[in-house]
Write a protein that binds this DNA or RNA. Structure first.
Lengths: 333, 333
DNA sequence: ACTAGATTTGAATGCGATTACAATCTGTCT
DNA sequence: AGACAGATTGTAATCGCATTCAAATCTAGT
């Protein structure tokens, strides 16, 4: 309950002096500082954030919108964000969109209310033009997913090249009939990974059979279902690339439920390298994304934006890399 | 940039009327409402949160402090919290303590600055007396971990009975030499689960060999290490209870690395029932916690506190239950 | 047409902090 | 001693909104 007035009274100074002790101590006499500080300590005084924000026209909270906080991939990124936010005196307001574009949009009002100074979008459910509009008015950075043709600061990985890398690896192992379990086609991420797959196949003059590419939704269950579908064809693939690790787990388990073995009968590769990928059996070969770094970079970018630093670069593509474990094997036919 | 003044001017009314349209429309003439609303729509006006908060002396953000957002257990709880927060017009400010008590304490200033109206603690690193003090001044609810002898609203599960349940199950399967990989002994959670283990063993007059209980820290790696330690003894246990699922995964993998099989040679049971437990092989038998419900209940409690509702109950213990999968087998000697 | 009563509106005030500017104090120099 | 520069402190305006209270407008009954 104790406000600046109370501190001022007890320290026998004006509220202006109290304020100065906190923000510009060099303009206040030594012993006054001491006296005021003691009272502050005593009363456990902390300046009211709302009043300060109103006066200063700035807040130190930023908004992060995630599609699903339960997904460890996003929580890793979030941790990166929080880490540099904290270092720089920012707090993060969490918006879980729950994979719902409407809900995602709802969070924009936080910005308009000036409740947050900026926003990091880990999602991509909002229409590109809306994002662009909001980004022209407020500091916004996109992480993980980029929006085609939108000129908003972005940090991401190159999903196309990552997918190409994974596919090439399978090809070099000798596989020719390669299946693909994609992410949802309405997400850039899903489309890009598919594109990378096609590119690699084309580069090696391999035919991709339409039946062998199935659309999942990044969930374990969909991986399981789609793999079962692939298994139902007369010519089953000898390797399949799942567009994320969770679906890869599903694929592996579907295969094993049919009495087949990974990688002896079918090789599986994933994408993301989440925490459980190395714990899973067989340990999953996958494309590793620098999740934590995506978070830190995104937050650094946002801070740059908020403090009006002129930026040399606003588009960052972080490196991904192939991590080899035990879910893929050679194939000779 | 458009404030209430701008709206008032364009709608040709005073700012008071604009404010009334938003908060007490029934006191404003029909057509005035319509006109004002149109301008508001037009300008995309949203009342400045800081000004509003300052005037009203209340905010709609609450603080949630988690030990580690990366842990799916906590992110599930968080999702529960967010879900009812959103329904009731609250936003959640996330504080990741990163398993660091100091950092945890740092978040308390958010409350003092009135940046958040209340707090949910999913951690328990802060000293009990400090928690009690802060809780006497601000709305605070504890979730997941309770603090002994602290009279603060709490929602948790009964870790003792859960652990007893898991142990009993192992005993009923015929196991006698049962090992335990505990959580850190400086956490209530870790101690309670150990207590449950001891209780069950005592109830069935089974001796617990000191060598067979090892202290881990809830991480996969510690599960792996501690299991290796257990495996090094001449009389290895026939079953081990790991105090959480991640450590259970570590235990299983340690066993398999030694060429032994789960559950044929050794049975493993975990605690938490995280998402990955049913995907893992063998699918892990474990104690399931109602994570989402813990979150919703905690948030409901907090809302009650913040709105000064008189509460019939402030201590909730949610049910846990044994979920049987494939990591435990019968033992006869 | 006039007035009491009901409805609608506007001007003034305060929330708690920051800060430009004015006022006061200190000590030094002439 | 008086004056002035520099250091220190206080005064008051301001941020954007909600709210109060009194003024303005409208309604209907006579």
């Amino acid at each position: 309950m104790s406000g600046i007035k109370e501190v001022a009274k007890q320290a026998n100074v004006s509220i202006a002096t109290v304020s100065r002790v906190l923000s510009k101590p060099e303009t206040v006499a030594e012993k006054t500082i001491k006296r005021v500080l003691e009272v502050i300590e005593d009363l456990n005084y902390q300046p009211n954030a709302a009043a300060r924000q109103l006066r200063m026209a700035e807040t130190t909270t930023i908004l992060v919108v995630v599609p699903d906080i339960t997904n460890t991939f996003f929580s890793d990124v979030l941790r990166g964000i929080e880490s540099v936010a904290l270092e720089n005196g920012y707090q993060v307001l969490l918006g879980d969109a729950d994979n719902n574009a409407e809900r995602e949009k709802g969070y924009l009002s936080i910005l308009r209310q000036k409740k947050a100074a900026g926003m990091i979008l880990l999602t991509a459910g909002i229409e590109a033009n809306i994002v662009e509009e909001i980004a022209s008015e407020y500091p916004v950075v996109l992480a993980c997913e980029y929006l085609e043709g939108v000129n908003v600061p972005t940090v991401s990985i190159d999903n196309v090249s990552g997918a190409r890398k994974a596919t090439e690896y399978l090809i070099n192992l000798g596989h020719k009939r390669i299946g693909f379990i994609s992410g949802p086609m309405n997400s850039v991420l899903g489309r890009d990974r598919l594109k990378g797959f096609y590119q690699a196949m084309a580069q090696y003059s391999l035919k991709v059979e339409p039946d062998l590419v199935q659309e999942g939704n990044f969930s374990y269950k969909s991986g399981l279902n789609m793999m079962n579908k692939l298994l139902a064809y007369s010519h089953t693939p000898t390797a399949v690339f799942a567009a994320n690790d969770e679906m890869a787990f599903g694929a592996v388990n579907a295969i094993e439920q049919k009495g087949l073995a990974v990688p002896q009968d079918i090789s599986i590769i994933g994408f993301d390298d989440i925490k459980f990928s190395s714990i899973f059996k067989p340990a999953l070969s996958t494309i590793s994304q620098p999740t934590f770094d995506i978070g830190t970079k995104a937050m650094q970018l946002l801070i740059g934006l908020m403090t009006n630093q002129k930026m040399e670069k606003t588009q960052y593509i972080l490196e991904n890399r192939l991590v080899l474990r035990n879910s893929c094997g050679k194939w000779s036919s």
